[in-house]
Design a protein around this nucleic acid. Structure first.
Lengths: 223, 223
DNA sequence: ACCTGAACACCGTTCAAGT
DNA sequence: ACCTGAACACCGTTCAAGT
């Protein structure tokens, strides 16, 4: 079955490269060193090959990054479907955040690409499906799904950016604290303890809860 | 007053470069060719100088990008303050989107940097101020402001990404349409007409309205 | 003090040539 | 068919040297 001599013609040597393994190696490299250090040359090195060889499998680096984003989205499993629509929608948003957090700079990779693969489309299908089945119109379901996804991307982008300077160096919170307390920002000063919290999950949950509460008022106009 | 011979010592030739003019030129270049084409060498060229000279005014390219983001934020004028808190908050969010839209790839520049300058902090101060004066707790004001800013960034990032492929080439909507209609995505198919609308403002307004409605339920728990 | 010139250590991408 | 080697046209950044 998996014997290369019986499965397909396969004349010549078996290839040392393929799309799936290359994407996997690229995601490992991403986790190890971050997006800025992910170059075609370094990826080729990790695969034991010259940089030019990658271009037989990916037309450009952007195509590779798109394949990486699609691979991240394909890993998402929608949580159990028994709950009501607001729990299911929240679960999808949390799953998206987790999928992006699973790889260093995951949100940056996702935000910089536009996959139309089954993972990405499947996730969008789930979001709009939950909303349409809850009774929202096609247009409202589309726009609500966009809002949830875009809030999640915006949030996770900043969450991972804060992680970048986490260890050593003048950490981001310190710089912000200094800038705020030096000037005349009374409201920001009051908000600062919350803004500089290490755990970003409550911030995400708060924004998500606002969107869901807003959607609920849309379903029950005045009650 | 502005005579260089009386204002300051200024021995030697007057400098051909300064921070403000460099940032302005960089923003012009951004509008003309986009972020990917904005290199230190091309910027130096536009200023009639060698690339190395820029490093006397900006420690790194990232510092330049941060200054550009700060310049964009400094241009924001908060809309008139007579309205109620929800209108003022929406006005701030709209002003942020407009400021990012004012420059090609503006959202990408902003999302990739972390200015702590007066423009950026002043905007954050306005957002938290509106919310705290409306009676929200410090923590809720902080998190609500984060949600509004992050939704706006997430939205504008995608809005400008869609603009990138606007003219010529296989435009993004077409690719999406083809991918969706080929597979088994019934909900996405229903949502497609809305998702592929050219005008993105309604999408933004919808998400913003959801956040504001969510905040209103927080103020009046059950009524 | 301010800028040039030139270099260093890289990039993404292409493509003839080898096997 | 698949990969190498080498090149092309760039990058960001540094720094002695000039003026």
């Amino acid at each position: 079955m998996s014997d290369p001599s019986t499965s397909r013609p396969a004349r010549g040597r078996p290839p040392r490269l393929d799309q799936a393994r290359t994407v996997e190696t690229a995601l490992d490299l991403l986790n190890g060193s971050g997006l800025d250090a992910l170059t075609m040359r370094r990826l080729a090195d990790a695969m034991g090959v010259q940089a030019g060889a990658l271009y037989r499998y990916f037309r450009t680096k952007e195509d590779l990054l798109t394949a990486m984003a699609e691979r991240m989205m394909a890993g998402i499993r929608a949580p159990a479907g028994g709950a009501d629509w607001s729990d299911r929608l929240s679960g999808l948003a949390r799953a998206l955040r987790q999928a992006l957090l699973a790889h260093r700079d995951g949100a940056r990779v996702f935000a910089g690409t536009h996959s139309t693969g089954p993972g990405t489309l499947g996730f969008a299908e789930s979001c709009t499906g939950v909303l349409r089945e809850a009774g929202f119109s096609d247009a409202d379901a589309a726009r609500a799904a966009l809002a949830v996804v875009r809030l999640t991307i915006g949030h996770t982008l900043e969450e991972q950016a804060a992680l970048r300077t986490e260890d050593g160096s003048p950490a981001d919170p310190e710089v912000l604290r200094a800038a705020v307390s030096s000037g005349g920002y009374p409201h920001l000063t009051a908000a600062l303890p919350t803004l500089t919290e290490a755990d970003q999950a409550p911030h995400f949950e708060f924004g998500l809860a606002l969107l869901v509460a807003g959607l609920e008022t849309l379903r029950q106009p005045r009650r």
